[in-house]
Computed example of a mutant assay.
Amino acid sequence: MVSLSSVRFDKTNSDVKTVPSAPIGAGFRIPAGATVFFGPQTKSAYAAWQRLIDFTGSDADEFPGCSYLAKLGAQAGFTVDGSPG
């Protein structure tokens, strides 16, 4: 299970490493690969993934929200704890 509160810019943890698997699997490049650090490369891949799945406006802000993570998790095989932490 991935905790929404753990997947934030500049955080380092195992949840951050789980989530990039879907954008990478869809062909979005993260030069460093799936790492435990949510940095600029991961943020860019998230933004591209959000646009691919037709997120727009504030939902396509380069940061995972609960609905985004749930959709990503459904495709990549992980569940999401959307509590604020």
Rank of each mutant, 00 (worst) to 15 (best):
S3T: 11
M1A: 13
A26M: 13
D61R: 10
F37H: 00
D54G: 09
P20L: 05
Q50C: 08
G85M: 07
F78G: 04
G77I: 10
A22W: 00
P40Q: 13
P23A: 12
C66A: 08
P20T: 05
T35H: 01
F37N: 00
T42C: 04
T18P: 00
S3A: 14
C66S: 08
T18D: 00
P64I: 10
S21A: 15
G39S: 07
V19R: 00
P23F: 08
F55S: 07
G73P: 02
K43H: 11
D59P: 00
A70S: 14
T12Y: 01
N13A: 04
D15L: 06
P64D: 09
F63D: 11
A22K: 02
A34G: 06
T56P: 03
R29Y: 10
G73I: 06
W49N: 02
P40N: 12
A60G: 10
P23W: 06
P64W: 11
F55G: 00
T56K: 15
R8L: 13
D10F: 05
S44N: 15
S67Q: 12
T18G: 00
F63T: 14
D10S: 14
K11N: 15
I30C: 05
V19C: 03
A70I: 13
A76C: 05
Y68N: 05
C66H: 09
D54Q: 15
A34L: 05
L72Y: 01
G65N: 12
E62T: 14
T56V: 12
D54N: 15
F28P: 04
K71N: 06
E62G: 12
A32C: 07
T79N: 10
K71Y: 03
P31Q: 12
V36F: 01
W49F: 15
T79W: 05
G57F: 11
S3Q: 14
D15S: 13
C66V: 07
T42M: 11
G33S: 09
G77S: 10
Q41C: 03
L4T: 09
M1W: 09
E62Q: 14
A48I: 07
G39W: 00
G39A: 10
S5C: 15
S67K: 13
S21N: 10
G25H: 09
K17M: 09
F38I: 03
S6L: 06
K43N: 11
Q41W: 03
F63M: 14
G85H: 06
F28C: 07
Q41G: 07
F28A: 06
G77V: 09
S44Q: 14
S67G: 08
A60R: 14
P31K: 08
I24K: 05
T56Q: 13
Q50E: 15
S21F: 01
G73K: 02
T18C: 01
A76H: 02
A76F: 03
A47S: 14
S58Q: 11
S14M: 06
D81V: 12
F37P: 01
Q41V: 04
W49K: 04
V80W: 02
D61M: 10
C66F: 07
K71W: 03
V16E: 00
A47H: 15
R51C: 08
S5E: 11
A76V: 06
T35N: 02
T79K: 12
G39K: 03
T79A: 15
A34H: 02
L4A: 13
A32R: 04
A32V: 04
A22H: 02
Y46L: 13
S58V: 10
